[in-house]
């Protein structure tokens, strides 16, 4: 009898949770680890920009116009003598800030709307679904243009997020939110029919408790995967909008450089005679996006084994 019991315990016992070993993960996912290293590098360089800079990023005439990379200006200077190295460092801040804020808002917002509407079902789910369809049908760039002319001036300044930055976050989030909603809605519909949710309903749990305690935790893994994949796209979207002049303001003492903005504007007319104006901001943007891309790819493999190896 005792033997039978121990055999049963062995069969149904919950295996002890394995401690996450970063080295082991890095060996299993070398690309992911490399991506993470790139992200850490970019974050570090951006955070340490005030220390690592060789000149204030917006300062005019810190060197001769269009000087190539040299001992004083490591990445050369712009046509107005601004230091490209310092600008590249500071520009990372806005890209990361907008990217992270956008993805958080877009993913959390999409997930929350999916949870509420899919759990409620019926007319609510139908209505929200059609609204999402509507947003998906509008090209992202067009949506950003419309928002820029309609709401950008009315948005408030938030702590750490100025009016123009908030516009970027809202514009890019609205682009990501419907996609996240669609993916998450499917998961909620599946989880809503699961036996443990039925069991919770039988014992009289409230809808809020079921959503919060039983469904939401099971969406978390996928949410992280979506976040990691959306982040590089958000950074590129910020760069694209800045390239089009719809990004953060480019003038003034406190103006924050942006890789996208530095790849546009008056700099472009000198690209052929001063290629460093394009190469360094472009490289920084490419490294960041590449890092997030391969890290997100590995993270998805790690957190969602069912999707491993598939697009």
């Amino acid at each position: 009898m005792a033997q039978e019991q121990s055999a049963l315990e062995l069969e149904y016992a919950i295996p002890p949770r394995q401690r996450f070993n970063p080295l082991k993960w890095a060996r299993r996912e070398p690309f992911g680890a490399f991506g993470l290293a790139l992200i850490i590098f970019i974050v570090f360089m951006s955070a340490a920009a005030p220390v690592l800079r060789t000149a204030p990023p917006n300062e005019f005439a810190v060197g001769p116009p269009l000087a190539g990379p040299n001992a004083d200006n490591w990445f050369g200077t712009t046509a107005r003598g601004k230091d490209v190295w310092s600008r590249v460092l500071f520009a990372g801040r806005i890209s990361l800030k907008i990217g992270v804020a956008t993805v958080l808002l877009g993913t959390l917002g999409g997930t929350l709307i999916a949870l509420l509407s899919a759990y409620a079902g019926g007319a609510v789910d139908f209505a929200v679904g059609r609204i999402a369809d509507m947003f998906i049908a509008i090209p992202g760039l067009l949506l950003a243009l419309v928002l820029h002319s309609s709401i950008s001036a009315d948005l408030p300044d938030l702590p750490g997020l100025q009016n123009e930055e908030l516009y970027l976050v809202v514009a890019i989030s609205l682009f990501f939110m419907p996609g996240t909603y669609r993916i998450m809605r499917g998961i909620v519909l599946e989880l809503r029919e699961s036996t443990y949710v039925e069991a919770a309903q039988v014992v009289g749990s409230s809808n809020f408790r079921i959503m919060w305690r039983h469904i939401a935790p099971n969406m978390f893994g996928l949410m992280i995967v979506i976040t990691s994949i959306s982040l590089p796209a958000a950074i590129l979207a910020e760069a694209s909008l800045s390239f089009l002049g719809l990004g953060v303001p480019i003038g003034g003492l406190d103006a924050v450089p942006s890789w996208g903005a530095d790849l546009s504007g008056s700099s472009r007319r000198f690209f052929s005679v001063a290629p460093w104006l394009a190469v360094f901001p472009g490289l920084a943007l490419a490294i960041t996006v590449f890092g997030f891309n391969i890290f997100g790819d590995s993270l998805r493999d790690t957190l969602d084994p069912r999707l491993r190896g598939r697009i």
Binding site: N58, R80, I250, G251, S266
Partner: peptide, 11 residues
């Protein structure tokens, strides 16, 4: 160039 002029002015 107008951007550069205004930027300089603002600074």
């Amino acid at each position: 160039l107008q951007h550069e002029i205004s930027d300089y002015m603002a600074q």
